[in-house]
Nucleic acid binder design. Structure first.
Lengths: 341, 341
DNA sequence: CTGTTAGCGCTTTCAC
DNA sequence: GTGAAAGCGCTAACAG
């Protein structure tokens, strides 16, 4: 039985070797499945290791091998709901193997980020994934790091870096195309904070879809906050100015929830009178509304997996091509655009 | 300039020493601020280190000192919204110092958890925080580990472990007391899945508050799902059976949102006719509704900090007393119980 | 003040 | 098959 709680003395390989009556190196070989060990010896060593609940010291091994099997996850904002699925996806891709993740939250502070970066480098992580909270480009960590770096969600502002971000332009396009496919032609756009690339990119894609169909948007897109409140207010405005509106593209699910509420208050039925689409497919919002929201899922978990795989590849000497890769998003159709049965 | 991307050759202390024309140990002392080094020498070493962008190898140091300055965060469910603030609080408490966090998500799978636990032990973390997704007790990792362990949110089922969990009974009590303070006397309770301790604990506290006030609850508590849909349905039921209801305690903010919607549909004004309270204070829900929701904030970030401090203390040989400590929660009053102005 | 020496725990040649 | 020895990068006594 190993020592308990904090006392921390842990059995070492040489203790196992001694207990098994073999040399250090033989014990090592036995436990690591090296070929040149007699079966009986191996069994004896294994038994000793089990009895002493031997736990190999990964530090020593890493020191020797020059690789730690760890990856740093540098995020700027743990609170945000976007980092989490990405983080899960990364953990996912790593988890199967032997890689563990160091999580660092810089709280959006450059100083703290630098601090964490240094700590990660000190700990000799094999690679670093930087996860931002917006899709706007963020400052690069620089090229002169000793380990590969990949940027997820927020791309790096340096084209020499490897970045993965969801394709918001296409997202805006497909969700608008879906409205067109539903026979809607008088389509308004209510978005969030225009200082976010997410807002302008989605609007851009949306407008492009309309243009391709030979349609004009119903008034200029309305920009505001990423909140239900703004959705409620903006919707009231849209209904007042364009009573004939039959489709509303929203910059987020929150905004869409607000739009839904105003539509309800004004006696406009969704989706019959007006179809409404959200964005992000934040399920607590999108699947709890009445009707449920058609939305765009950015596949963030897959994005996390992609970033993780890219780091793997780079560690193995096969880095992904530099630049920003925009990953596909997915339309999720629900009751707010298609009436139930 | 250090080598780039993956090539990974990093300068070592001996290279710095050589470049500075001193011995290895002098370089070490100089860089670590040890006293017995001539200022000029120290400067020379520092300069060399900077020039070569020397990064001390934390592995080597840890191997020597027997402590890594890392802590494992073993969670069962990254998706859940409860682990995140706890994780942030922990990161917070650690971040200031030199500690980094290994994040492991077991996906609610015992096998995977065991796997991750082994990995953490291999990497010689100084301590482990186990974060569950529910407040129901979870299986202990056992007593015979080489490092201290602390349980957060989900307490361990072994009273010999150290656990921290929010006090749901008190939460149910204070939120109900608040309704009483608002002059409500005909109070119903709509909760979530009764297999969750969170549901039953909150109901228990709520009933106790009513009993203390000499009041009986308005019918038995309704248990269902943790969803808006259930909130909508249950509220309809309550209004039908008890038209005179003037206060509804909800097991979660989601349920409360549903209740709000039904009240609206039925022409019951909130808070005038009926006051409604949520639970968890999930702000995307609680501050976006109309009216905004009075709710209970479980102070999860503080809980995370507490757990982190407990781990620190245990590492320093001063473990917290065993058992489950129930941490205080906080009532957040908004428009759903107090009319504006 | 500075340098030499001995390890931390492990893997890996290289002899036996 | 097995063991002795070297060394990953660093710190901490010891001498000088």
């Amino acid at each position: 039985m190993p020592r308990t709680h904090g006392a921390g003395r842990v059995t070492t390989l040489s203790e196992v070797a001694e207990a098994a009556g073999v040399s250090l190196s033989t014990a090592s070989k036995a436990l690591n499945g090296r070929a040149q060990v007699a079966p009986a010896t191996r069994a004896r060593v294994q038994a000793a290791a089990d009895r002493l609940s031997f736990t190999p010291n990964a530090l020593a091994r890493s020191l020797l091998e020059g690789k730690t099997g760890t990856v740093g996850l540098l995020t700027s904002d743990l609170e945000g709901r976007f980092v989490l699925p990405i983080l899960m996806g990364a953990e996912d891709a790593f988890g199967a193997g032997q890689v563990n993740v160091f999580l660092c939250d810089a709280r959006g502070d450059a100083i703290r980020e630098q601090h964490h970066l240094k700590a990660l480098l000190n700990r000799r992580v094999d690679g670093i994934i930087v996860v931002g909270r917006q899709t706007d480009p963020r400052p690069s960590l620089g090229q002169d790091l000793s380990v590969p770096v990949v940027y997820a969600y927020a791309p790096s502002d340096d084209p020499d870096d490897v970045s993965f971000t969801p394709d918001n332009v296409v997202g805006g396009r497909i969700v608008t195309q879906h409205l067109l496919d539903c026979g809607r032609t008088r389509i308004a756009h209510i978005s969030g904070d225009p200082s976010y690339a997410a807002a302008t990119d989605r609007v851009e894609g949306s407008q492009a879809a309309l243009a391709d169909a030979g349609l004009a948007p119903l008034g200029a897109p309305l920009f505001g906050a990423w909140s239900e409140q703004w959705g409620r207010d903006a919707a009231a405005q849209v209904f007042a100015r364009h009573p004939d509106v039959d489709g509303i593209v929203c910059g987020s699910d929150q905004i869409a929830r607000g739009v839904l509420e105003t539509a309800r208050d004004l006696g406009r039925s969704v989706p019959e009178d007006v179809a409404v689409v959200g964005y992000d497919d934040w399920q607590v919002l999108s699947t709890n509304s009445r009707p449920e929201l058609t939305s765009v899922d950015a596949n963030l978990q897959e994005l996390g997996r992609t970033a993780a795989r890219a780091i793997f590849a780079a560690i193995d000497g096969d880095p992904a091509p530099a630049g920003v890769e925009r990953l596909p998003v997915k339309l999720v159709i629900r009751g707010s655009t298609i009436a139930r049965r």
